[in-house]
Each structure stands twice: as structure tokens, then as C-alpha cells.
């Protein structure tokens, strides 16, 4: 038995707001295997982004363990943490906010290659072109500023940046939620291609169960910082057991169409 790629146990994060203490993540446990997609679904405010940020060490947990690639991820600090980040990447919901507004596409892609010593300075321009082509963008985009390209192109750039260091896990926090339907379908296809070819695992955060059903192997449904139910994505979405699962399925408009496609 090999250990899972990511094993989270007892993860807890509390915030105090207005004198009251709320647990944004409350004793959360789950695991992700190599090359697998786990969806994290739940209503707004249920703690999805908090869990993403805890896993990426953008915020620190109050309690719990995170094992990543077989070692204790929460004990890493400084240079050791920065090095390991090459294997654990994230794509944010709004690529305009998540990329330096003053940067060019080339610089955004150059940073990870430079920081993790993936390619020499002379070699990096070619690697940047290869990355752009990998995510379906033309090489001519390299010189453009981030604010000059479309939302869909920006999210492709964000994905190219995330895969530049050949990560084993990419956390996607509502990464397709802000895109139009047609662009969303293209990005989802790109993510599936990348997963098949490079065996990347995804923690796919979304409140859209239609999308989740199309892309995820397993699902965990969050409610108030706790996992209300989890299991095989189709099984759970087709027959949710928890109250919150039923409410989410009832609220998903596109689900009926996707179900009809599947049958």
C-alpha cells in the first residue's frame, strides 16, 4: 500500500468575527490519490476557500495534520516550504486578481521556471512558448500584459503557471466559476487532458454540481466547515443523503440536462 498523495486529518481553522467564534474548517479529514480529482462542494461560506488556503499554507491551521507526498507538510518552513510548493499549486477564481496586474504573460510564466531552477535564463523563453501551447494559447501572447487579454486566456495563463513546475496536485478554487459557459467547457476539457497526460491530481472546489459531476472522481460536501457527506461523485450527486447535499442538487439547474446526457 502506498500512501495517498494528500492526506488531511482533523483540519480546523477558527475565526472570531464580532465577538463570536466561527469554525471555517471544523475537524475536516479527506485524502486525494495520485491523478485523482476530489471535488469540494458546498454553499457559499461553507469553508471551501479556507480549506484551500490551509492546504497551500496561505493561512495556518489551528489544529490538524496535512501529509503531502508522504511527509508532514505543516512542519515545513522557509526555503524547504518554498521548494515543496513546486509540487502543490493553485488556480484562483479570478485570474485578473490572482496575477500581478502590471506583469506580462511572459513574466507570469517565467517566475516559476526561474524560482524553481527549472530552466536556464537562455532556455526559459522556449519553455514559456511550450507552456502557452500546452494550454492552447498562441506564442504571440507572451509579450502582452495580463490586463490586455481575455478572461478565458487569463485563466489559461494561470493554469500554465500552475503546471510550469510539474506539480502533483493542483487546487482549483472556483477556477471556472467566473467564465462563460463555452469558455468553461474548454477549460474543463483542458484540465481533463492535463490530468490524463501528466497524472495531476486536482482538488476541485466548486458550488456547481453539474461541473463537479463531469470532472470529479469523488466528492466531499461541506456545510458550515464540516464534511456532511462524501463518496463517489456520481453516486453522491445522483442520490444525496445529507440535507445539504439534497439542497445543493435541487439548486443545480444544469444537472438535469447533464444527467440526461449521461443516460
Amino acid at each position: 500500500m502506498t500512501s495517498p498523495l494528500l492526506a488531511v486529518s482533523g483540519l480546523t481553522k477558527r475565526y472570531s468575527s464580532g465577538g463570536k467564534i466561527i469554525a471555517a474548517a471544523d475537524d475536516v479529514s479527506f485524502h486525494i490519490e495520485h491523478g485523482e480529482t476530489l471535488a469540494l462542494a458546498g454553499p457559499s461560506g461553507s469553508g471551501k476557500s479556507t480549506i484551500a488556503r490551509l492546504i497551500l499554507r496561505l493561512i495556518e491551521a489551528d489544529a490538524g495534520r496535512i501529509e503531502f507526498e508522504g511527509s508532514d507538510f505543516l512542519s515545513l518552513n522557509g526555503a524547504a516550504l518554498r521548494d515543496r510548493r513546486a509540487h502543490l499549486q493553485m488556480v484562483f477564481q479570478d485570474p485578473l486578481a490572482a496575477l500581478n496586474p502590471r506583469a506580462t504573460v511572459a513574466r507570469v510564466l517565467d517566475d516559476p521556471l526561474r524560482i524553481h531552477h527549472i530552466a536556464s535564463r537562455a532556455e526559459r523563453p522556449r519553455r514559456i512558448v511550450a507552456l502557452l501551447e500546452r494550454v492552447g494559447l498562441s506564442a504571440g501572447l507572451a509579450g502582452r500584459a495580463i490586463h490586455e487579454i481575455s478572461g478565458g486566456q487569463r485563466q489559461r495563463v494561470a493554469i500554465a503557471r500552475a503546471i510550469a513546475t510539474k506539480p502533483s496536485l493542483v487546487v482549483l478554487d472556483e477556477a471556472v466559476s467566473a467564465l462563460d459557459v463555452s469558455v468553461r467547457a474548454q477549460i474543463l476539457r483542458l484540465l481533463l487532458d492535463l490530468q490524463r497526460e501528466e497524472r495531476i491530481a486536482y482538488l476541485f472546489i466548486s458550488h456547481d454540481l453539474g461541473v463537479v459531476r463531469a470532472i470529479a472522481h469523488r466528492i466531499a460536501i461541506l456545510d458550515g466547515g464540516r464534511i456532511a457527506e462524501s463518496g463517489d461523485a456520481r453516486t453522491v450527486i445522483d442520490a444525496p443523503q445529507s440535507a445539504i447535499g439534497k439542497a445543493l442538487v435541487a439548486a443545480a439547474p444544469k444537472l438535469s440536462r447533464i444527467e440526461r446526457d449521461a443516460s
Binding site: M90, I115, T165
Partner: peptide, 26 residues
């Protein structure tokens, strides 16, 4: 607090570089 600073941390950028190259110009 903005996402692009979090994004710079995620790719493993050194805090000093984040401060001077990502944050300061903005």
C-alpha cells in the same frame, strides 16, 4: 491581502521579492 500576492507565495517566491517586486510597484 490581494490574490496575486497569495499567488506569488504559491509559486514559492521569496517574501523579499514579493514585497519589492510584486507589492511595491503597485
Amino acid at each position: 491581502e490581494r490574490d496575486f500576492v497569495a499567488g506569488a507565495r504559491v509559486i514559492g517566491m521569496h517574501p523579499l521579492e514579493i514585497a519589492l517586486r510584486e507589492v511595491l510597484p503597485n
